[in-house]
């Protein structure tokens, strides 16, 4: 343990909660979710309805992602939880603590060491490998929702591949702003079939979905939908031939690690509004600064 990781000590102190099944959910519920996940993997990008349970965290705070994590976690897994790319944001701490308590699994902040990574709003900068599963928390799984409010209609549109209207929105952006003005939750086509919402990750992360060696699972608890991108699946961000998809770039470098190709958070550091930019992925930033120090922590 080292002083740079304020969570490590209290994390280890978290006692295993008794009176609950391994990873909170009962085995029957987990089996139901696993069946849904198998279907989701078999039909990449298709939203599978599932009997989402009430979790002891509020809807909208990651209950979908937590249910998927609970369904796939095994005793040997090493769990990492990030929110906004960071391991130490309150909600990430809270969810990591939940699984440390209810499943007693080992937790880590180091991306390469994790076998299951639950995330809200980011994909880690460190490339994932084939032994890892990334679980996304999804608020609104339906990419067509803001064009068509009715679920009956959007399901028909998916079934018929009736997606012209998605490009109407992009056309309108270009006509109005000269650019596609969607910067996060940027819709993608999965395996040349379903249009999918990649959850509110910045479009910066979209290319990481394409041909990823890691399995990507998406869970929306309130909306009771789950979907998946299996390893090595084609994921294409919607665009026009003459206005191709492009990711954000910063003129600044990370104030800590100097990275110029990672996603940067902007901090306002004084009353005059002076700004600093730092990596949103805290582990990536840490690794670049101290590449040799081991950081594994254990939840129990």
């Amino acid at each position: 343990m080292n002083g740079l990781n304020p969570n490590a000590a209290s994390q280890a102190a978290g006692a295993l909660e008794s009176g609950y099944n391994f990873a909170y959910l009962d085995e029957q519920t987990k089996r139901m979710i696993r069946r849904g996940l198998l279907k989701a993997v078999a039909v990449p990008g298709y939203q599978v309805p599932f009997g989402g349970r009430e979790m002891p965290l509020p809807y909208g705070w990651g209950t979908g992602g937590m249910q998927l994590s609970a369904a796939i976690l095994g005793a040997d897994d090493v769990l990492k939880v990030i929110d906004q790319g960071a391991d130490d944001t309150t909600n990430a701490v809270s969810i990591r603590r939940f699984f440390a308590r209810t499943a007693g699994v080992a937790t880590t902040t180091r991306t390469p060491e994790a076998t299951v990574i639950q995330t809200r709003h980011r994909i880690p900068e460190t490339p994932l490998h084939g032994e890892q599963i990334l679980v996304f928390q999804v608020p609104i799984p339906e990419p067509l929702r803001f064009i068509e409010p009715s679920e009956t209609e959007t399901r028909t549109m998916h079934a018929l591949g009736d997606y012209g209207v998605m490009h109407v929105k992009l056309y309108e952006d270009i006509a109005t702003f000269g650019h596609i003005a969607t910067s996060y939750a940027y819709p993608v086509t999965v395996d040349e079939r379903y249009v999918m919402d990649p959850s509110p990750i910045p479009k910066f992360d979209n290319p990481k979905l394409h041909m990823s060696p890691a399995l990507m699972l998406f869970g929306a608890g309130r909306e009771k939908r789950l979907y998946a991108v299996p390893p090595f699946t084609e994921v294409v961000s919607l665009d026009f031939a003459d206005h191709p998809f492009a990711v954000q770039r910063w003129e600044e470098n990370c104030a800590f690690c100097g990275s110029h190709d990672s996603y940067l958070d902007e901090l306002i550091v004084d009353d005059a509004g002076s700004k600093r930019f730092v990596c949103s992925d805290t582990d990536y930033c840490m690794q670049r600064r101290e590449p040799f120090e081991p950081q594994q922590e254990v939840g129990q």
């Binding site: 997606y163 012209g164 209207v165 490009h167 109407v168 056309y171 665009d239 026009f240 031939a241």
Partner: peptide, 14 residues
Amino acid sequence: IGERLMAQGVRHYG
């Protein structure tokens, strides 16, 4: 005007 063309797969803004 462009919607039908987009639905038919036209992916060129110009």
